[in-house]
Amino acid sequence: MTVTTTGRTRVGSRPAALPAARRRPRLPFSPWHLLLVPLAALFAVPLVWLLLSSVMSNAEINRFPPALWPSRIDLGGYRYVLGNAMFPRWLLNSLIVSAVAVTSNLVFGTLGGYAFARMRFAGSRVLLVLMLATMAVPFQLTMIPTFLVMKKLGLIDTLGALIVPALVTPFAVFLLRQFFLSLPRELEEAAWIDGCSRLRVLYAIVLPLARPALATVAVLTFLTTWNDLTWPLIAINHDTQYTLQLGLTTFQGQHHTRWSAVMAGNVITVLPVLLAFLFAQKAFIRSVTSSGLKG
């Protein structure tokens, strides 16, 4: 697995020899594991249970007390979810919305961030301050008028209503601006003097250096759009336009007795994020911590 590859190099952080009086009988491992293992189990158990119950039969779940371990693997839940319900459609909707949001945040975030970092134009100061101010605006404050705007645009009940507000966030613009500011100017200026256009400079010189920042924007945009429930709940009524999150919660409401199917649907909802996380764990954790440490 890729998860144990965090080589941490701390040199000489411990005194070499402890006083003999403090030496206790030695365990073959650090005593802290006695605390950490049960805690880690506590964090892992709900997810393990999610996976297990998705392959149980309904009979096993509906018994009292319910079984804690499947006697055999039953894929009935998955068959039901993929055959009868609209999960494939919802999965596709979620993929479309997230893919468009990630791509457009990368493109518009880069363009906007670069202009704010490097180019001089009238009004740039005011616009930057306004943009920063919007980062502090809670979504609840804007959701009712945003609904009315989307209704005016005729986008309510379409994926467009989910995509348009997510096209570019002030966070993406600001994060990339900060990153571009940290790059040395000389490289770009040299190319600019040689007659390269701004767009070419951006594409050929700046972007290859900006990979970590772009990864952060991609990861955080994907996480927030994929996981969002509030806005789809408001903007979408018709079940062909549901995202996975919205579909899952309505599905649960309608199939209260088919827990194995609900859990199968839940696995499908969680799996893309989980896979992305396990494959790009370093990028995920770095994204989250860097946005935290600089905040």
């Binding site: 518009f108 943009m131 008028p145 945003t146 705007v149 348009v164 096209l167 570019v168």
Partner: peptide, 14 residues
């Protein structure tokens, strides 16, 4: 694009 989306769907709604 950024200004349009952010101002249109944030400042205006506020």
């Amino acid at each position: 694009p950024a200004v349009l989306v952010i101002l249109g769907l944030s400042i205006l709604p506020v």
